[in-house]
Write a protein that binds this DNA or RNA. Structure first.
Length: 268
DNA sequence: CCCGGAACCTGAAGGC
DNA sequence: TGCCTTCAGGTTCCGG
């Protein structure tokens, strides 16, 4: 599942490989991912140069020479591949570039989206603070948590709260901070908030260094896997032993999401 | 505004 | 072997 580290990895590879390239043809095998009119989508992209590639939350933003932006969200199983070995039935949209490279939007479950927007405002208004924004401080986090009567795990998944965390890294951050996933957000004391702030940053930074985690269908632009899942302390490890205390890790369901934690290290 | 749950989608895995 | 059910999860939408 692409979360911030996975999207960051893909963004960096795209920026390095296709910046400055021009789109010379577009093949739409499946229109579902495209928001709005297909014709308008094609017209806005055809012959455009990709001026830059950036990331905001879990969105990948392609700035076009026209000034408009192609915003791509990979959701669960989407990937952006450069010159894949084969074009299988999940290759939904294919862009040919003037370098004759193919940029392919591949998505098994068809949750992913692509849209042309005139200004970043369209997605900006849905997203909370970026974890690596210098203004994301323990003090700000403490303020954001106050008065929120929801399990901290649920709040970490809310993109309008902090942008970029998903199910895996929310669990990893809570474990690193030694905070129980069901603890009410407003009930975290100052040292817990400080630990959580630091844990969010270290967990994401470490995963980016590993090229993201290959769980489900995540792959890099060259089709290879990342390594971050080998470093998970709790995610998808139910029944296995905690690396810190040796206790069996548990899986519970929070907001319909599988949630992994250590019952001994993470107290209510 | 705040919160919880269903829906979207498709392949994998498990039960009988 | 084969059919059926359940599960996975990012985001949006809807209801209380």
């Amino acid at each position: 599942m692409p979360e911030l580290p996975e999207v960051e990895t893909i963004k960096n590879e795209l920026a390095q490989n296709i910046t400055g390239r021009r789109i010379i043809s577009i093949t739409i095998n499946d229109a579902r991912p495209i928001q709005g009119s297909i014709q308008a989508f094609s017209d806005e992209l055809m012959h455009q140069k990709i001026a830059s590639v950036s990331r905001r939350g879990k969105y990948i933003l392609f700035k076009l020479s026209s000034g408009k932006i192609l915003a791509v969200h990979l959701r669960m199983t989407g990937s952006l591949l450069i010159n894949p070995h084969q074009l299988d039935k999940y290759a939904r949209v294919i862009f040919e570039l003037d370098s004759h490279d193919l940029l392919v939007f591949r998505d098994l479950r068809r949750f992913g989206t692509m849209q042309i927007i005139s200004s970043p405002e369209v997605i900006e208004k849905k997203l909370g603070i970026e974890p690596f924004d210098p203004s994301f401080t323990p003090e700000l986090l403490k303020k954001l948590l106050s008065n929120r009567n929801v399990p901290i795990k649920a709040l970490l998944l809310d993109q309008g709260f902090i942008a970029g965390l998903g199910n895996m890294y929310a669990d990893e951050a809570l474990f690193t901070a030694r905070v129980h996933p069901l603890k009410k957000a407003a009930d975290l004391n100052s040292s817990e908030v400080k630990r959580l702030h630091g844990a969010i940053l270290t967990v994401l930074e470490s995963a980016i260094k590993s090229g993201g985690a290959s769980v489900a269908n995540y792959m890099r632009t060259d089709g290879t896997e990342g390594n971050a899942h080998n470093e998970f302390n709790v995610a998808h490890r139910a029944g296995e032993r905690c690396y810190i205390c040796g206790s069996p890790l548990r899986r519970i369901v929070v907001r319909q999401r599988g949630t992994y934690f250590c019952p001994k290290c993470q107290k209510m």
